[in-house]
Nucleic acid binder design. Structure first.
Lengths: 377, 377
DNA sequence: GGTGCGACTTGGAACGATCCAAAACGCAAT
DNA sequence: ATTGCGTTTTGGATCGTTCCAAGTCGCACC
């Protein structure tokens, strides 16, 4: 068996990867371990031709039912396994889709990946997984590697700071790409969440409860999803005639830990906000922890909303009001879209916007000053 | 482009899958969209033979440096993309590994998958993903589909209730399999956590703090990992001469929600336990929520330990004492193992046990009756 | 001026499937 | 016996790569 080992993942020129030369004979196993069975073996085994077996495998109506039965019996008897790579080579088709995510350990993407795989598996496709760990260099290497397996399409959630031109160069002109979750410069087929509307809904919900001093909490300034959510937040405030306090836009890494650490910034000046629209659920949960640590009670004297509706959101104390996007369904949708483009490459690229839904739970309470119907668990 | 659509995923006979017959000409795109470039195109483009280009691609020392430069320039110029499927077909080798997990949305497996992909990507392999959603039938279908892509090996975390013989039949005799996380009847290469030791360590830790009434909380009775952890728990109690109260082994689904719901069972009889060794972190976190809901304070008047050390464990209130198994490193380890067996199939199958480590945090406190140095945050 | 040799290069023949045009077969009608 | 026709079957050619044996080339040596 020949093994090619890649050395440097040349980030600059992903189209052409160099390998170490390894003498083919070097790793040769001494004994020939009875190669995998082929169409020919099956054909010989039951006295028909390759072509007939191939037709049987694909369920063609051309073969006589008697012949079919004989062939199927033989297939089962010898334990023949179809070689899809060979079939794809000849048929110039593919039966895989590549999924490249920036962070698999994020439960949101894990759910998304599960959705993609679910939809692909249903039609006999497989998912080629690539994870970039938010590194643009690894993303180039991963794309270069995946594209060599001739996937029917690529679903990409770009690493932060990705360059559209580099991605286009790595992927080449023949594979349809669906960009998910983040924006990428250039003309791409998109599947993006309606971040603005989501954040607007959450903010309007807080305004409706009586809040006037509302912060936007967490996320990176330069992340496109964060920017869009901030815009939705600002739009809602502007529409309600509420002024925006720049000091109430607090930047943190989008993790629970960082969000918990930065809570102090919310109360740096007087008057302090009475509610916060958070960048996502992780941040919101971190904020709740941080509030508790400072002696405040989220859902009672400070209102919090999140974004994503990750499984923990429903189980936190208090349960988190958030904006749901159903990542698994999104994964299925992404797979459907890439398959549609694969079947008809002439479909125009477009921007599909994912609808969002506000889920109201106990973390969003009226402001302490407002007297009224306070919900309690 | 020919599309084969699988109909019924025949669970019984996964070796031979039947497809609907679709007339090849039916879905034919009218315009021929300029096929992908091949070695031949590159060769013609710079006036050498296929063979030479092939040697250049694989970094062979046989080609003249001048020729190499010319070929590399041409490769870059036309944007040639290597067709690994064709290469694998000829070389009878493979550059992919299949990863089949029972539940991708579980952060533990997501981390594991990230580790696998990390290790594979480093040597230019790709990960074929398959997720079974804990369904034995889907597992058979997924295995049958993946094996057709001729992976170099399969890493399998079996769905609950898997039958070893069925798995062996679906996979065939030529692909090395590494079973992870769960036991599977038959002779397999294993990578399993040291569940007994982990639970024993946690239990001993609680005993060392002064607890005498310790429950085992959560998990399914018939899950092998749960059984092993229970055995470690029992071993520690027995070694300390503490009797086991059968009513303190409480069964729940291994989720946060279910664990939170069942808390009442812990306090059904008097005297009630003062501590609980939990099946895993999800259960432990659920238990903590349930305790709070009943007016008890975990880490102050009731001690809790978990298993897995998921990211949330460090961030819960109180932070969770747990047993760490470093899933990402386990993923890398699994990939290494499968690659080793791929390179030398004669390696004997074995059971590799993953070392575990007790991480002590604030959720494990001394029992309320014991007077002494109570830690506090 | 042949011979040998090292350094490169190259044209088929694979790999395991699909596709196509042609062949074989059975059977009824001429 | 021949023809025609519909149903089944089949042998190459092909997909894009790798491998191998055999090729070309330049040059030193006798």
């Amino acid at each position: 068996m020949v093994v090619l080992r890649r050395t440097v993942p040349e980030a600059g020129h992903p189209v052409h990867t160099r390998w170490n030369w390894i003498d083919p004979n070097l790793g040769m196993a001494a004994d020939k371990p009875r190669a995998r069975l082929t169409l020919n073996d099956v054909a010989r085994g039951c006295g028909v031709s390759r072509a007939t077996v191939s037709l049987v495998l694909r369920g063609s109506p051309l073969v006589h039912s008697e012949t079919r039965a004989r062939v199927e019996a033989e297939i089962r008897r010898v334990g023949y396994i179809y070689n899809r790579a060979a079939a794809n080579l000849r048929a110039q088709s593919s039966s895989s889709v590549a999924l490249v995510v920036n962070d698999l350990s994020n439960p949101y993407f894990a759910e998304f990946a599960a959705g993609v795989d679910e939809a692909l598996a249903a039609i006999g496709f497989v998912t080629l997984l690539g994870s970039t760990g938010e590194s643009v260099q690894r993303q180039q290497a991963v794309l270069a590697s995946l594209v060599q397996h001739a996937p029917a399409g690529i679903i990409l959630s770009p690493a932060e700071g990705s360059d559209g031109a580099s991605v286009a160069r790595a992927v080449g002109p023949h594979v349809p790409v669906l960009v998910f979750n983040r924006e990428l410069d250039g003309a791409w087929d998109y599947l993006v969440m309606d971040n603005r509307t989501g954040a607007r809904l959450a903010t309007e919900h807080l305004i409706g409860l009586g809040h006037k001093r509302i912060a936007f909490y967490g996320g990176h300034r330069d992340s496109s999803s964060c920017r869009e959510r901030r815009e939705g937040y600002q739009a809602a405030l502007a529409a309600a005639g509420i002024g925006i306090e720049p000091g109430w836009r607090i930047e943190t890494a989008p993790t629970r830990l960082e969000a918990a650490r930065q809570v102090g910034a919310l109360f740096a000046r007087d008057p302090a906000p009475t509610a916060a629209v958070c960048y996502n659920d992780a941040v919101a949960l971190g904020l709740q922890l941080g509030l508790v640590a400072r002696g405040r009670e989220p859902g009672v004297d400070f209102a919090v909303t999140g974004f994503d509706d990750i499984p923990e959101a429903a189980l936190s104390v208090p349960p988190l009001t958030t904006v749901a996007t159903a990542p698994r369904a999104r994964g299925r949708q992404a797979a459907e879209r890439i398959l549609a483009r694969m079947r008809d490459p002439s479909i125009a690229i477009a921007q599909q916007t994912i609808p969002v839904q506000l889920i109201v739970r106990e973390s969003s309470c009226p402001p302490p000053v407002a007297i009224g119907n306070r919900r309690h668990e």
